[in-house]
Structure formats: C-alpha cells, structure tokens
Design a protein around this nucleic acid. Structure first.
Length: 803
RNA sequence: GCCGGGGUGGCGGAAUGGUAGACGCUACGGACUUAAAAUCCGUUGGGCUAAGCGCCCGUGAGGGUUCGAGUCCCUCCCCCGGCACCA
C-alpha cells in the first residue's frame, strides 16, 4: 500500500460529497432536525485565518456525528460582507465594494471547501445580496412601525479617523475598536433601536436556554439591571421637583445634598433663579468638552459647582439641602440627578470631602468620618427616624412603602444598557428604507419597493460634516413621498454591520424565499438553532442584538420560539507560536493554506481539535501539527493489517467499548482533545496487540471520521467496507463491556500508596486483603502495628489504617 | 472596586474525593542507514538510594475536613476575561 498522501484524495472526497449533495439539509420535515450554527465570517482581504477552522471543525464534527445519528442536519455557511475594510479599500482604489467583496468571498469559499467542512453550500447567504438585505430592511420597517426605531439628537461616540458614529460597544477604553483613534463626543441625529424595551426579557429568558455560564453572566452584566426607587425631592419655593433614582432608599435620611448632571434640564428651567449662572455655564462647557471616557476615568478628583439660589428639601425630614452640578452624574443613566449620601457611597463621600459637605451616619457599622460604610449585610439603621434599628434590607422595604403611600416615590428598575445607535454615515451598508417628507415626516418605503439598493457612486469618502457619501448623490436622495406624493428626501445613513448578522440564521432555513424572510414552515421546523458556537467577543454585541431581533419577530408572530439559540458555546483564540495574538505586524501568522498543502486538511483539523482545551486560548505549535500528522500516518498503516472478523477480538473488546463511550461523550462536550487522545490510546493498544480485524477498524474509522473525514472515508473505500462512511450509523457501546474485569489497584497504608495488587472487580474484601498482605513492602510497613481500619473500594483502592 | 475563569512536568494539557502527570510535543539513548531525514524501540516531575523500584518531596502559598485532597472548606498571592463615577 502506498504511503499516506492526503493531497491525493482530499479534493476527491470534497467533490464527491458536493456532487452527491450528502450534506444538504433535507426538506423532509418529519425527521428530527438538528440546526448547528457557527458564526459566518467577514470575508476579509487577508483570507482565512487559522482561528476560523477551530470553531468550524468543532461544530462540523458535531454535525457529522448528528447525521450519523439519524438527524436531518442543517449546518450552513454565509458571509457577513458589509463593513468597513471593503469600503476603505474602495475609497483608496476607487473600486466598487461589490467587486472586492465578491473576490474575497470567492477566496474564503475556496479555502473553507479545502478543509472539508460539511456545510450545506446550497444555502449560502450573503448580507450584501439585495435579495438578502431586502429582508434586513423589511425587519427594520417592522421595528419602525412598532415604534422601536426612532431618530434622536444623541451625543454619540464619534471616531474622527473613520468619520463614523460608533455604538458604545464599538468603543474600547475610549478608543475606536477598529482604528484605535481617540473617540470624541458629537451630537448627531441618529436612528436608534429601542433594545431597552426588551432589557428585562433579554435577562430573564436566559433561564430558558443552555448558554455557557460566562456568556449568561456577561450578558446580564452588560444589560445591568438595577432595582431601586425613584424619589421626588421638592425644590424650595418652587413647583419644580428633582427626581432621583437610588438603590439605597434606606439611606434617605443621610442624603445631605443633591447632585445633578451638567446637562440636566432643571438648570434651564430655573436659570433665572440661579445667582452664579456664569460659573455654572463655564462648568457645563468644560464638561461638554470632555468625552464620556474622560468623564468616566477613575481616580480623578471630583469637580463640581454649587448651584446658588436653589435648595432642595429632603422629603423624609424636610431639611433643606444644597444642590450641585458635577460631571460624575451622568444624564444618560437614571434621572440624571442623585441624592448624595456621603456616609454610605464612595463617590458621594469623595465629593463631600472635596467640598466640605456634611456627612451623616445612617447605617451603623463603620466610621463615616474616615470612609464611607457600604456594607448592606450587617449594618443597622440610625439617625433615620422610623427606620432606626432596622437592618438594611428591612429598611429598604419600609421606606419604599412609606414613599409610595406619601406619593414621594415609586419602585423603579434601571438598566445600564442603552438603546442601539443604528445609523452609520457610510456607503457600504444596507440603506435605511425611509424617506423624509416635509408634510408627513418619516415615511417607510412600501414593501414592494424593497430592496432599496445602493446607488452607484464615484466617491465613497464620507464627508467631513459626518454625513454619509450617499448624501452627495442628489438624484438618489430626491424622491417622492410614498404617502402624499410630494417631494421628499431619502435617509442617507446606512445600517451598522450588526444588522445583517442579527437574523442570518433565519434565512438559512429558507434562503431563496422571495415572499418572506423565510417561510413559516421552515422557520418553525428549524428554529431554534440547536447549537450555536461563536467567539466571546460577540457576547455583548451580536448575540444580544440577534436575540433582541428574534424576540421582536416572535412578538410579531414571525418566529415561534422566544429565543433563537438553544445552546451557545464559545471557543478560545489560537495564538502565534510566541504566545501572542496572531497578526501581520507581529509576524506570527500561520496560513491555513500552507498547513493544508504541507500536511493535509485532516491534519489541520485534528491538530486544531487536539491543540488543547477548546474554550481557552492556546499557542500554535508546528511540532504539535507534526504529531497529529504522525497519528494519521499510523492510522493509515493500520489499514494494512486489517484481518477478517466481524466481532471485536478479546484483547481489544473492552478498550473498544470504552473508546466508543469516551469519544461519543467527549464530542458532545467539546472535549475534542481528550476524544482524540482516547483514539490515540486505542491505536497504541492495537499496535501493542499487533492485529486488528474489520469490525475494529470500522469502529475506529467511524469514531475518527468527524474530525478527520477525508482519510476515514478513503480508508473505508479502500477496505471495501461498503457504501460511504458518512452514510453509516454512529457506533454504540455496551456499558457492561466497558468495565475491565481485572484491574490493578493501589494498596495504601495510612493513605499512602505502598503497593499494587491485581484483582477481579467482584472479588470480596477478603481476596483484596489476602493479596495486599502478600506484599513484602506492605508487611514491612504494618509489622508491629495495629490495623485500626480497612477501606476497600472495589476497582479503586485498598487502604489499611494502622497505629 | 465588582463579577467570572484559571494557576498541575521543559511545552500543550489529562485526572466521578481513590495509584497525579493520560495523550501529544520536546529532549536524551538505542535500532535501521555509508550518512542524514523519516520510521521503530526505550527513557523523560525533582531528590535520595544501602539499588529492595524502596523512601522522601511534589498540582500558586498557608491552614482545615477526610482513612485518603489537584479535586471539598477557610485565608491569601498571582494571571486572564468582562463590567466600572450606572447612583
């Protein structure tokens, strides 16, 4: 037999699978279905990265196993192809982004196909295809019709380099996630999506799904639900009031002053009464100049200005308290105003110390003169009228009902999550299908006019004013109002890249439908996605956005499940050999094409699965790749030794049953490293035994197939095992036969291993004792001592406790 | 600061409270070869060793529970990730 040359047959099998359509999802909806999903890539100009195949191979293995288990499997792939790199390339080279996008997709597709993934290529989707984004626009219109899309003057994060507004999620430590430029604040009229309307459900419904815990936790953190009370503080000698949100209503008696945000509207309303207005104005101006990030920077001295001429009244005791403005209070959270309880809040304490404001202790347990006391477990209320003597939790309940009864406050839930800034001042995105009419306001395009396509332009450069390049195409902008037929203008902002990826999994269920985003039957059959694997970096963005859209479409009756993804797992990154993130600039990039050329696709796949804990980052190792290649070569050689036989032979039987069990469960748990290790162990055992029969070889190939589909299919054919391997059933094991009858167990004296005995599993303790006491070393150790206890765990340990 | 996840050989990593280091890599020794590569075989946590595979040490540090702890409990240190002036 010739040696293992994967290059000579990998392509062959890829072609056969494709021609026979063996991985196409079946339209027979009576079969049990399985929808396995991986995040579709942005087809960048750099081509596939070795990071891509890690999650793809993992779920490919799951998909292949599911098919062998009799499921109708949907395992699709597509392209998240709108986005900045293609647009920037277009700007530099004056080439339409469609062209470069097509090229990049072509390259990605070819690379993915060379790795033998069992994607159903007949269902490929592309977010930039008008037949696709027609439905992205359609969903947007539904959101608009349901008041979940609105335009608002918003201070936005502005990247001066990309000339683009960024969502909070795209700002990392005050800099643009893409280009690293320092983000500024600008006020722009932006389309917003009201994701906050779904904040509660986005948290609560996490109980319905099987997401890895860290994903649930991160989403919950990001949404940041906080329960408290909104309290009304009257302004002295005025009809105006100040509303504050607090999670510590129990400390209300300790509120010694108030702070409002520099942008708070009360300042304008009562400007006439403020005696130090110039000072206030100067502070407002200063605050405006700071970015959100600068304002949020910790460790800086608290700043602020007292508002002269205004006093508020603490509603619990009618004491007069001063009102300040300070930029540590954010207009965008709660009511933009706080009651300050310096005795029991870190920030208020600092502010009070800076400005010499009174600090009152209302929860006993610390020393509020030297530090705020924030413990809510042990403290007892003091100086608080009717709350005195209560613990914090009880005091909260008491004061909340008191406030309610007196019309001074109501329970309130606030969220850290903000509405989603949905506009981009860019060319290469889905046009927002709305027109602005002088008379009718914002009017949606009628559904028949979708998709609204992008016009051809000469220049893709965004304008310095921050408007989209589309604004310059007058003949595209000028249109008629669908409602009154009067003159109107199109919206020139486009959608963010997160739009197309928010629903792509639905399109896979029925990708060519031109009547609906997908047919109800297909959506109902295939959804929810049974298993979705993707990067942790998408937990707070894509995953949350797509859950939001899905919930909205659920409310609209389009889909029938409240959650889109039943199960979510996540993979770690593959780092360079130097343990740093792979990047061109670091010169540590491994090109998957080269690995395939030199070692074969199966080696790459096996290596990426064997490399380490799937959930953790791990450095690439060229030596490790060679090790996996050697393993496949040994498998190849194994096929030369295959003898007839349809029963597992005596010396291998137990090991085979154990391996089937181990591999079957490890694949489900994403523990590919230990599954492959188990197959290596079995291989070593087979080589040690020195012979293998057909039945054993069949099982070996079946178990290895999900990670190494080409070599296993090839050997299946060469060994004439009948049919194609991918049509076979997943092997089963007999639990009773996974147990070795005779085992070596340790013999301990006082818990320390001092020897070994070979014993039958069902041997009684007497036999174990006799064998243990037959050991010289054990006898030596217990000589002259008293045995006080004997512990025997069959199959595990025999332990003597002596004195 | 808060919330997660970790810390095990030279490296990646295994271990339902029951013989720590599976499996792979590296390194070393041997076989094959004119030689090298490849392949195959062996060794590979540290120390002591009277050489009996016997003893001691060993899973970030220190305590504890247990016949027995990498695993459970307490205290602490370090690394990674998320959130962070969010009231």
């Amino acid at each position: 037999m010739e040696r293992y040359q994967p290059q000579s047959f990998e392509k062959k099998w890829q072609n056969i699978w494709e021609e026979k359509g063996v991985f196409q999802a079946d339209n027979d909806h009576t079969k049990p279905k399985y929808f396995a999903l991986v995040e579709f890539p942005y087809p960048s100009g750099d081509g596939l990265h070795v990071g891509h195949p890690r999650p793809y191979t993992a779920l490919d293995a799951v998909a292949r196993k599911r098919r062998m288990e009799g499921y109708n499997v949907l395992f699709p792939m597509g392209w998240d192809a709108f986005g900045l790199p293609a647009e920037n390339y277009a700007i530099r080279n004056k080439i339409h982004p469609t062209i470069i996008t097509e090229q990049n997709i072509g390259r990605f597709r070819k690379q993915l196909k060379s790795l033998g993934f069992s994607f159903d290529w007949s269902r490929e989707v592309n977010t930039t295809d008008p037949n696709y984004f027609k439905w992205t626009q359609w969903i947007f219109l539904k959101l608009f019709e349901n008041d979940l899309a609105y335009k608002e003057e918003m201070p936005i994060n502005w990247c001066p380099a990309c000339k683009i507004g960024l969502a909070n999620e795209e700002v990392v430590e005050g800099s643009c996630e893409r280009c690293g430029a320092k983000v500024e604040t600008r006020v722009k009229n932006q389309w917003m999506l009201k994701i906050t309307a779904y904040a509660d459900r986005l948290i609560d419904d996490l109980d319905l799904v099987d997401f890895i815990e860290r994903v649930k936790i991160q989403q919950t953190n990001w949404i940041g639900r906080s329960e408290g009370v909104e309290v009304v503080f009257p302004i002295k000698d005025s009809q105006e009031t100040l509303q504050v949100f607090t999670t510590r209503p129990d400390t209300l008696f300790g509120a010694t002053y108030m702070v409002i945000s520099p942008e708070h509207p009360l300042l304008e309303k009562l400007a006439a009464r403020i005696s130090n207005l110039p000072e206030i104005r100067a502070y407002q101006e200063e605050a405006r100049k700071k970015t959100d990030f600068e304002r949020a920077e910790l460790g800086q001295e608290k700043t602020g200005v007292k508002i002269e001429g205004l006093l508020a009244l603490n509603p619990v005791n009618n004491r007069e308290i001063t009102v300040w403005i300070s930029d540590y209070v954010l207009m965008s959270y709660g009511t933009g105003a706080i009651m300050a309880v310096p005795g029991h809040d870190e920030r208020d304490w600092e502010f009070a110390k800076t400005f010499g404001l009174p600090i009152v202790e209302v929860v006993q347990g610390g020393d509020v003169a030297t530090a705020p006391y924030t413990d809510t477990e042990k403290g007892i209320l003091v100086n608080s009228g009717f709350l005195n003597g209560l613990d914090v939790e009880t005091a909260k309940k008491e004061i909340t009902s008191w406030l309610g009864a007196n019309g001074l406050g109501t329970p309130q839930t606030n969220f850290r999550l903000r509405d989603w800034v949905f506009s981009r001042q860019r060319y290469w995105g889905e046009p927002i299908p709305l027109v602005h009419c002088e008379k009718c306001g914002w009017v949606p395009l009628p559904e028949e006019e979708l998709p609204l396509r992008l016009p051809q332009v000469e220049n893709y450069e965004p304008t310095d004013t921050g408007e989209s390049p589309l604004a310059k195409i007058k003949e595209w902008v000028k249109t008629t109002c669908p409602r009154c037929q009067g003159p109107a203008e199109r919206e020139t902002d486009t959608m963010p890249q997160w739009a197309g990826s928010s629903w792509y999994f639905m399109r896979y269920t029925d990708p060519h439908n031109d009547q609906a985003l997908a047919s109800k039957e297909n959506l109902d059959y295939w959804l929810p996605v049974d298993w979705y694997n993707g990067g942790m970096e998408h937990t707070t963005l894509h995953l949350l956005y797509s859950r939001f859209w899905h919930k909205f479409l659920y409310d609209q009756g389009i889909v029938s499940t409240p959650e889109p993804y039943q199960k979510r797992t996540s993979h770690g990154m593959i780092l360079g050999e130097n343990n740093e993130k792979m990047s061109k600039s670091r010169g540590n990039v491994i090109n998957p094409d080269e690995i395939v050329r030199e070692y074969g696709a199966d080696t790459l796949r096996v290596y990426e699965m064997f490399i380490g804990d799937f959930e953790k980052n791990v450095p690439w190792s060229t030596d490790g790749v060679r090790g996996c290649r050697r393993f496949l070569e040994r498998v190849w050689k194994l096929s030369e030794k295959v003898e007839p036989g349809h029963k597992y032979s005596r010396p291998l039987e137990t090991k085979i049953h154990q391996t089937i069990k181990k591999v079957s469960s490890d694949y489900e748990l994403l523990k590919f490293n230990t599954a492959i290790a188990a197959l290596m162990t079995l291989l070593n055992k087979i080589n040690e035994v020195g012979r293998i029969n057909e039945a054993e070889m069949r099982v070996f190939l079946l178990l290895l197939n999900p990670v190494a589909p080409h070599i296993t299919e090839e050997l299946w054919e060469r060994l004439d095992f009948g049919g194609m391997l991918n049509e076979q059933a997943w092997p089963s094991w007999d639990e009773a036969k996974t147990v070795e009858q005779t085992v070596n167990i340790g013999v301990q004296v006082n818990g320390k291993v001092r020897g070994q005995i070979e014993i039958n599993l069902d041997d009684p303790v007497e036999v174990a004792r006799a064998k243990a006491l037959d050991n010289k070393n054990i006898l030596r150790l217990i000589d002259g001592k008293t045995i006080v206890k004997e512990i025997y765990v069959p199959g595990r340990i025999y332990n003597l406790v002596i004195k």
